[in-house]
Design a protein around this nucleic acid. Structure first.
Lengths: 306, 306
DNA sequence: AAAACTGGTGCAATAAATGCACCGCTTATC
DNA sequence: GATAAGCGGTGCATTTATTGCACCAGTTTT
């Protein structure tokens, strides 16, 4: 869209932190870009960049403007999607930010199912920690977020929620393997691996330990649940994952046991969007199917079907 | 703003109903305008005009797009107003759609008071019937609406409300003038003048008469309450007006008497904005002062101070 | 002190938008 | 039924806007 050129340039300058670097990124001369910025500021009525010795930076006015542009761009996509819908095309693009636990099968399964009915719809799946997922929503980089225990919750409109119990993942021959459920303190008696503090599972465990004398002493700390699960195949340790992310292959030699809710209450896996925003048709439809799927999980009380 | 050129042209074409007429209005050749439209449609991905033998007309996609553009334009103004505010300029423009009853003194008084404190703020006051006022909000042509008994109420977010009793306006020597309050049927026994059915007062009176055998037989029907009031000075008839619009000069020879609430319940004068919209700073501030003023009227229980 | 950055500017080259004349078409008008 | 007037659409020359280049003034790093 031609009329959003200025926006693209402004965003590039913001990212690069300097007009010359941005000009390089956008394959244009610095002088041309410089004049575009100046012309825009003159039309807008206010400077949007503060000029520093080593480059430029958005001033508060610029931040407001950028937010406006992003909202406008997203709204234009919504309109296009709506038009596509009344043209009977049923196409569009859906962008989702989600926690790692959704990546093994829950999200792929539902996206695949949706695409068999709407082959024209394409997807972006962005694996994000809970803070980044919310940031994505606010920046209009994702339409939907499916995350465990989001951080801020401002501007996060909840569409659906399901409880998620943290499970301990271990080898089948682990001493705790024959328990139906395990206690958190039992787990910590054995070598354990932990997600970094950016992740909700870590946060939930630390909250559960607050006030106790027990502390975490992870032998491995990682930002990849996939890595942690595989690591347990090599060292006899305990890893953690929420139920929806569990589908351990039979030949992996691993099993999972829920941590007693006496130690840790279930966390909430939330499907949400940015508050106040009208989603594109395609995203809204897909959100509806996810809501149905989550409600089904809720009534099944298992959290493990798919 | 340069990047809204296409929008201005598209709107002109919509208004003119033909590319050639619009080209004339916008001081451009038809061919240039035609190509702009085509280029836009190509970038947008869909046609937004249906080509008719006698011109063009917006198709549903175009309607959606136009609504998007209007919202975007209004949001840009909001951003500018917000930037002006953080620059300490305290300027801006406020656009209000309101019923005629507000024009004699309520709105002028409050606007004048507001402008003494914020001389940089300018106003547009558009007198509209209740349907047109709501249309103005939806088209982003007005920020606020102050109307009696709006019609649809969808997309109308109520900010404040005060009850308004319909009054009969008559000469001081009228037979009903010595009543503290008058009955509706009494009024109809005398010659009376009525607003057209676009106005809430007419609607309220007709609703009050529904189910009775009485019918309206207005000697004059008008869309101007000002005219109707003045007419009563010349013919001994009864006119109607809500309390907030009444401030009869002593030398006019006219008095007003409330119609008994046994016959007609008080209508609601509503201050509202478009649902979901974030108002520019200036408009939001002015709305707050109006809300305070309306609440004061409410507690005073008169509806006649100013 | 020199080098390496930064944003900003005058001027010529280039790209984009426009105006003009005209086409094919439909609908009013005679 | 022929003619005229109106419509949207298109090729081509012209005009306008945008860009690239060379360079300036300033600050920071070397």
């Amino acid at each position: 869209m031609k009329h959003l050129q200025d926006f693209r340039y402004i965003e590039a300058v913001m990212r690069a932190g300097s007009i010359r670097k941005a000009a390089d990124d956008m394959n244009i001369t610095a002088s041309a870009l410089n004049r575009r910025i100046q012309r825009f500021e003159s039309e807008f009525g206010y400077e949007i960049f503060e000029r520093l010795p080593r480059g430029v930076r958005l001033n508060p006015a610029g931040e407001l403007l950028l937010q406006h542009f992003r909202s406008q761009q997203s709204d234009l996509k919504r309109v296009q999607s709506q038009v596509a819908d009344l043209a009977g095309e049923r196409r569009g693009h859906i962008s989702i930010a989600c926690s790692q636990a959704l990546s093994p099968y829950f999200l792929p399964a539902h996206i695949a199912a949706y695409r068999t009915e709407h082959p024209g719809v394409t997807f972006s799946v962005n694996i994000r920690d809970r803070a980044a997922a919310e940031r994505d929503l606010i920046n209009f980089e994702s339409d939907l977020a499916l995350v465990l225990e989001p951080v801020h919750m401002v501007d996060f409109a909840v569409l659906s929620a399901i409880p998620q119990v943290v499970n301990a993942v271990m080898r089948k021959d682990h001493p705790l393997a024959d328990h139906a459920e395990v206690r958190l303190r039992e787990c910590l008696d054995y070598p354990h691996v932990m997600p970094t503090s950016a992740y909700a599972v870590r946060h939930m465990i630390e909250r559960a330990l607050a006030g106790t004398s027990r502390t975490l002493q992870p032998v491995i700390q990682s930002d990849s649940f996939d890595f942690m699960r595989h690591y347990v195949e090599f060292e006899d340790a305990i890893s953690f994952q929420i139920s929806i992310g569990l589908r351990l292959p039979a030949d992996s030699g691993l099993i999972s046991r829920p941590i007693s809710t006496r130690d840790m209450p279930a966390g909430s896996l939330l499907l949400g969007q940015m508050k106040g925003r009208t989603l594109p048709i395609a995203s809204a439809r897909f959100a509806e199917t996810l809501i149905v799927a989550m409600e089904r999980l809720n009534t099944d009380q298992t959290g493990q079907d798919g």
